[in-house]
Amino acid sequence: MSSVSTLSATEGQERKIPIIKLGTFLLMLPLLLWLFLLIILPHVDLLMVSLREKLGYREYAFSFQNYIEFFTEPLYWNTFVRTAVMSIIATVITLIVGFPISYYIAKVMKGKKRSLLFMMCLIPFWVSELVRTFGWMILLRESGVISSFLQWAGIVDGPVEMLYNDASLMVGLVYTSMLFMVVPLVSVLDTLDDSLIEAGYDLGGNTFNILREIVIPHAMPGIASGCIVVFMLTLGNYLTPTLLGGKDGLWFTEQIYNQFITRFNWESGSAFGFLLLILSSAIVFVGLKLSRQTLADTVK
């Protein structure tokens, strides 16, 4: 009797294992489908399109021409370098501005005030990026709020144009990215035990070296993930550079858009898209290596 029940128990267990596996599989199915249909498949398609050269109407041949063109035509290459450099600068500025804000929210503010401050960082993101950008245009344009104020205050004689240059572009990019820096920084600084900072002071440290040796090393995963997100978002931004950047403001995504939409040149558009993916990944990789972080750390 007892042996029979033992047997059926083991059987039951054995039978259970594949059921659990099926359950796990079903649970993962949406993720797998999403990954495959929306991430992998389009990229494979993009890669195939990018590797063909148009010979005539509906006549294509396998070729690296689109990639070669990117590297041989200084215009595209320069645009990419400019976009990357501007994105890196925007990321650094966002970090420099965002870190004290995050520290203040995570470590200094308590309770309601803290939620309020966090909310204030969040509110601009309730409206669309387009509206936010127009907000800046209203402020910065020649007939805009700041220009009018300066004239009213007698600081300047005539209207000042603050729009359509790299500085206004930078302001827009930093503003747009701020939340994506503040959120990971606040959450990582939240996990920093206050007593570590106190211990630093107690052992003779001053504010500067506590920041450098305790706070920043602790916050490094958050800094890295914030920087990656901001860098990628800035690099892939289309609206802000187009609207605030002005006549000299070239942006690589604009090039891709132009290739696809106005040139009908899907081949080189795909190649540019792929190059953007590869080159930006390379920059992130170098950044992680320099800061001695791993990608796994940043998503902890």
Partner: peptide
């Protein structure tokens, strides 16, 4: 006709990229 858009595209790119 086909092909002109490519010529135009490059011109537009170069104008945009040129220093003002």
């Amino acid at each position: 006709p086909a092909g002109l858009e490519t010529i135009e595209g490059k011109v537009l790119d170069r104008v945009k990229a040129a220093s003002s």
